[in-house]
Amino acid sequence: MQVFNVPKSIKKDCTFTFCAGCDHGVAIKLVAQVIDELNIQDRTLAIASSGCSVLLYNVLDVDCIESPHGRGCAVATGAKRAFSANGKDNIVFTYQGDGDFASIGLAESMHSALRGEKITAICINNTNYGMTGGQMGPTSVLNQVTTTSPMGRNEQYHGFPIKTAEQIALCDGTCFSARVALYDYKNIINAKSAIKKAFEYQIKGLGFSFVEILSSCPTNWKLSPQDSHTRIKEELSKIYPVKVFKEK
């Protein structure tokens, strides 16, 4: 019995162009599997954002639009409202990095959650700006060394990181908010079930559903893929707890 093959919602013969060991590939695979399992490939619209996450549109075999940096949830809002105005029940989700979702796009993200837009947002949190070379992002943790916090993130000088899943859970329009990780098989399976739940919440029309995924960025962290996962397990998941914060 075939227990695994490349998901139907992944384009044929495409190659992922992420760095070796980057968790983006795992996250996209999980999204594709969920789309397959829910049988929504032919009515799903993906919103890709700026940064590494934009590469989603090269690999995911669903309709896709690229959003300006940070505006993913606004673009998704417009698309979902337009579908709804035409009596269509298409599924709309965003795939954004933490800089996109929680820094430049925080207003759009949070207000979409507050309005309870019936969309799903997936935020890849790798605690830095990956595509531009590893600068300090909104989620870079205290003491983290990045190219723009060479002495480490200092709370007095740089301020504090944002705990996105917790913040989104506080919004009344949010029906599901969870943080997951991908550093081992168990977490990957849990992440998949959270992503699936988020999509199911949208299908049921219950409000804004959100999954923050703690992801590795081996290139910019200057760690091996294995050590990157160890960092998530032993350091990041203590600061950013892996759990479901809200489930309506």
Binding site: R71, A74, V75, G78, K80, F83, N86
Partner: peptide
């Protein structure tokens, strides 16, 4: 009329909603 209206959080959001809306083939 069952149509879409959003009092957006900013003009930036409003025009980006229009990006998403028009992409679906809808007049916005």
């Amino acid at each position: 009329r069952g149509l879409g209206y959003v009092c957006a959080e900013s003009e930036i959001a409003a025009i980006n909603m229009a990006l998403g809306g028009t992409a679906t083939g809808t007049k916005v």
